[in-house]
């Protein structure tokens, strides 16, 4: 019989060794060391980033996209650092290569991810969660595991897609085929990359909030953002209907239905602008 436990071990081993996992740009390690070194100034960090034109362009593009919703144009790395904070900037740099894979491989998932990022930020602001920009970044990464399934476990992903098309629930199918779902894969990789625990836990628990220990609110925020974006029909994922909803997310965040309405009214113009952003990126890759 097919053993999901064995498969799970195999998948984790592959992830631990980063076999077939998209590589991070070399500048990341240098930056990580600089960020940890207290003697290094922010200006020095900005200088290193600016020397890398490709990274600078990508980061500024993301910083200017509507999901952060800055009224002012961010035109230098220094400004981005001030507005987004070093943590967010580091994550954007680290994951820029992943984002590239997402919009090359699956534009629908990319749109879904930036939609969730925008929505998670609006929710985080509404309920006064610390560092809403960071939460937006977690939104961007919440389906990282799906990208990894797509590029690192290609064959298995095809099987998953086929079974899902027959009307089965994606999360369960992932568990059966790989022994692990996308939320856990994403979190596992984020741990390997030394990303903040708060973001890892939020991503890991975005389908099952009760799994979060320290960061229930963050997990609830991502969960609700994911549901609201699916409900609005922005982007496309394996879930062509709604993923399972956890009503306790509203209780944890203390959000009422009229507040959800407010969130949607703030979100709609952002989504409208984000569509231009993804369309422009699409042109660059065709």
């Amino acid at each position: 019989m097919y053993d999901a436990t064995e498969k799970r071990k195999e998948v984790k081993k592959k992830l631990r060794k980063l076999e077939g996992v998209p590589t991070l740009p070399p500048i990341v390690q240098k930056l990580s060391l600089m960020i940890e070194d207290e003697r290094v100034s922010l200006n020095q960090i900005a200088e290193v980033i600016e020397k890398d034109q490709v990274i600078t362009t990508k980061v500024l593009r993301l910083a200017n996209s509507a999901f952060y919703g800055f009224p002012k144009k961010v035109s230098t790395v220094n400004q981005a650092m001030m507005l987004l904070g070093l943590n967010v900037l580091k994550i954007l740099i680290m994951t820029s290569s992943i984002f590239e894979i997402i919009h090359k491989e699956d534009i629908g998932l990319w749109e879904h991810s930036i939609g969730v990022a925008a929505c998670a930020k609006i929710i985080a602001e509404k309920v006064n969660l610390a560092e809403p920009q960071e939460i937006a970044t977690a939104g961007l990464l919440h389906d990282l595991g799906r990208v990894i399934q797509m590029v690192t476990f290609r064959e298995e992903y095809e099987v998953i897609k086929k079974i899902v098309q027959q009307g089965k629930e994606p999360l369960k199918v992932e568990q059966i085929v790989l022994g692990i779902d996308h939320a856990e894969i994403g979190a596992f990789l984020m741990t390997q990359w030394n990303l903040p625990e708060r973001l890892i836990e939020a991503v890991q628990s975005h389908h099952f909030i009760e799994q979060a220990k320290k960061y229930k609110k963050e997990a609830a925020c991502l969960h609700l953002a994911d549901i609201l974006i699916h409900a609005r029909g922005y982007g496309k994922t394996l879930e062509d209907k709604l993923p399972p909803f956890q009503p306790q997310s509203l209780k944890i965040l203390k959000i009422s239905l009229p507040e959800i309405k407010e969130i949607y009214y703030r979100l709609e113009p952002r989504l409208y602008e984000l569509k231009f952003f993804t369309e422009e990126l699409k042109k660059d890759f065709t």
Binding site: I227, H230, A231, G233, D240, K241, L242, F245, P247, L250, L257
Partner: peptide
């Protein structure tokens, strides 16, 4: 279509 299988009240 997206809500075709939904019965949960909040949703």
């Amino acid at each position: 279509y997206r809500f075709s299988e939904v019965s949960e009240e909040t949703l």
